[in-house]
């Protein structure tokens, strides 16, 4: 068995006075699709950013494949939130994807033929070949997300950290992204993604991390993605939905590991109401 893709020990992060992540201990094995799930402000994005040292942590030790960030950097791909950049910036989709190759290039080095080939392959994988020379503001939200994903693919990493890759994308883009993620997993890669839609967790992911400042639970979806754990994760915010919670409990438990299809649709409804109320 290989070293785990990501290990966090005693990770604590605070913004000003407010703790965002509280003493997180987490080990995620390689070769799986992992969802990080939790209410707004639960520290999901912060977990990814703290692991990559994009935000400062008060304490904690982070290992990727048993290595430090510095040693493992070239093995890690990162997909930031789409809103984090100015999409009116004067670059083409291909330029952005080519940035995924910069980790292999020195400061003064121009992209080589192999880098251009890798960028083109990544664009192809997300179905954006036809859009490659478009300036990025001329792309739809879903296409922009695909470009970000293609840039990460061009990194040819072993572990991908993705901040809400499904946020605000259309149905066809969502399917395209899921296909890409599955192909990555089938090639032995690991994907850890912040995910908002409870309804699709069981369908898309192998493993789930339930987070609300503290780590509530982490493990295979079939074992961990239970009504009890979700109640703990969305504590307080779901109290008015106890009736719905009761319904999903009865729906999930008999079907067990094989796929709680009727239950998740109720979960999805819960999540929608919770979002609206927050």
């Amino acid at each position: 068995m290989n070293a785990p893709a990501l290990e966090l020990h005693d990770l604590t992060v605070a913004y000003e006075h407010r703790p965002v992540l509280w003493d997180i201990d987490l080990t995620l094995p390689a070769g799986e699709l992992v969802a990080i799930v939790g209410p707004n402000g639960a520290g999901k994005s912060t977990l990814i950013k703290a692991a990559l040292k994009l935000v400062k942590s008060l304490s904690g030790d982070v290992r990727f494949f048993g290595q430090t960030l510095r040693e493992a950097r070239h093995r890690i791909g990162y997909v930031p939130q789409r809103e984090s950049v100015d999409w009116d910036f004067p670059v083409s989709a291909r330029d952005v994807v080519l940035m995924g190759r910069y980790g292999r290039l020195s400061w003064l080095q121009r992209p080589r033929r192999a880098d251009h080939a890798a960028a083109d392959a990544a664009l192809e994988a997300v179905g954006m070949t036809a859009m490659a020379s478009r300036q990025i503001s001329q792309l739809s939200g879903g296409q922009q997300q695909r470009v970000f994903l293609a840039r990460a693919l061009a990194q040819e990493a072993e572990l991908y950290l993705m901040d809400e890759p499904f946020a605000g994308v259309d149905a066809s883009t969502e399917r395209a992204i899921v296909d890409v993620l599955r192909r990555l997993r089938d090639n032995g890669r690991t994907v850890i993604a912040v995910h908002h839609d409870l309804q699709s967790v069981a369908e898309y992911f192998d493993r789930v991390v339930l987070l609300n400042t503290r780590l509530i639970a982490a493990g295979p979806v079939a074992e961990v993605f239970t009504p009890q754990n979700l109640h703990k994760t969305y504590a307080g915010r779901l109290t008015q939905l106890d009736a719905a919670g009761e319904a999903m409990r009865t729906a999930v438990q008999p079907s067990g590991a094989s796929g709680p299809a009727p239950g998740v649709s109720i979960l999805g409804a819960n999540a929608a109401i919770e979002k609206g109320g927050a």
């Binding site: 950013k49 990559l52 040292k53 994009l54 510095r70 950097r73 890690i76 990162y78 930031p80 984090s84 950049v85 100015d86 910036f89 670059v91 952005v96 940035m99 910069y102 980790g103 840039r151």
Partner: peptide, 10 residues
């Protein structure tokens, strides 16, 4: 364009 991504690249 994307300082966070640049930081992610090291």
């Amino acid at each position: 364009f994307d300082s966070d991504f640049a930081r992610g690249l090291g």
